[in-house]
Structures are given as C-alpha cells and as structure tokens.
Design a protein around this nucleic acid. Sequence first.
DNA 1: TAATATACCTTGACAGATGAGGTATTATGG
DNA 2: CCATAATACCTCATCTGTCAAGGTATATTA
Lengths: 107, 107
Amino acid sequence: MSITSDIIRGHTEAIILSHLMERDSYGYQINKDILEKTDNRYELKEATLYTAFRRLEQAGYITAYWGNQKTGARRRYYSITPEGRAAYCGYKRDWEEAKELIDKLLR
Amino acid sequence: MSITSDIIRGHTEAIILSHLMERDSYGYQINKDILEKTDNRYELKEATLYTAFRRLEQAGYITAYWGNQKTGARRRYYSITPEGRAAYCGYKRDWEEAKELIDKLLR
DNA sequence: TAATATACCTTGACAGATGAGGTATTATGG
DNA sequence: CCATAATACCTCATCTGTCAAGGTATATTA
C-alpha cells in the first residue's frame, strides 16, 4: 500500500461509480475488486467507502437494495442511475484534464 | 478554472517544489507561473500556497530569504534544499504510480 | 468451539484547501 | 495630485473527505 490518501482523494466516488458501471455490486466486493485490480497497492478504507456510498445515494447517483442470497451475511447492493452514469463521465473528463495539468506542472 | 481542489489536493507541495527545481522564486511569481502554464485552468489559492510554504519549510525542503530588489513590494524568495530535491523525486514517483492506478480503476 | 471470513455500520479526529480578512509598497490613469 | 490597481505578503476560522477505532451479525473452518 503506497499511494497516499491525499493523492487518491477525490477519486473515491469515481472509482465506485466505475465499478457499478459494469454491474451492481456491494461494499465488500468493490473493496476486494479494487485490491485485486491494483495488485494490493491500493485499498479503500471501509469508513471511506461507506461515507462515499451515502454521498452518492444523496446525490442520486446510486440506489441501494438488499440482496436476497440465502446464505452468508446480508449484502447491500448498489445500482448506478442514469444521473450516476452522467456524473461518471464528468468525473472521467475531470481526471483526464487534471492528469494533463499535473503532468505539466510536475515537469 | 475547472479542476476541483480534491483532485489537485496533495500535489500542492510537489508543484511548488517543481518550480523551485528550476530556480529560486517567490509566492506571487509561482502563482502566476502556474496560471500561465495551465492556460488559466488552474490557480493555487494564496492561502493554500502560503500554508504549503510553511509545511515545506518545516520539513526542511525549502529555505526562505528576503529579496533585496530596490523597488516594488518586498519579496520572500524560496530555495529548494537537497532534501527538497529528494522529496520532489519521491512525489513524482508517487504521482506516476497513482496515475497508473487511477487509470486502471477508472476504466 | 474458537477463530476467521464475510458483511455491514457509526463516530470523532485530523489535515489540507480556502474564503475572508488584513498589511504595505509601487505604478498608473485621469 | 490623487484614487485605483497591481504587486506582494500573511493569518484565521471553516469546510470536507479520509480514516482509526470501535461496533454488530452471520457463516465457515480448523
């Protein structure tokens, strides 16, 4: 785990939305996906994840429902809304621009 | 001005050090350089800039001295230290890694 | 049956960014 | 000559996202 939270800060919501673009998912799963995708180099902390869920729900970017699996602990699934998809595109554009700018500034 | 502070957050120190790698400079000048370099798309707020200077001084990454220009308002110049140069390299590596990770996560 | 993994959640504290306020000097347009 | 803008510095209180630390509950495994 090497990436500082200040660098990743502000990307939490985009990262979550990105996962939900592919399929509905739940907190624990999203966290594991991130770990795997980054070869254990980055992990969203649980508190960060769940507060982000609240923000995203509040903003109308995701909706939640309880999974109905028969076994294992209960899961709260999240689904991305059309507004969420639009927001994701915005986040992505912001990232592309920020990347360009920071590259320029850290020459 | 489109880049949110949360995306740029954590890069302030690196951006300042990057400028000081080229030559000694002072707050007002660094701010104008950033504006110019980014075609007015990003501006470090003054309060952010000066608090960052304090942090960098505290960390031993920069040293300060008053300019001796005969005319105009007084200027406080900053100089990067060897430790600062090393820190800059670290920040830069962090950025390259973060960039890669975020790109992966925002697929 | 104890430990581990799965899965959720809340609270308080922290740190960086910033709006709003301030000071002082010099240049400039009317 | 005077008002305004530009240069140049600084501080403080507030806001926001992150996170450590704590909690709950169920299922699996050794």
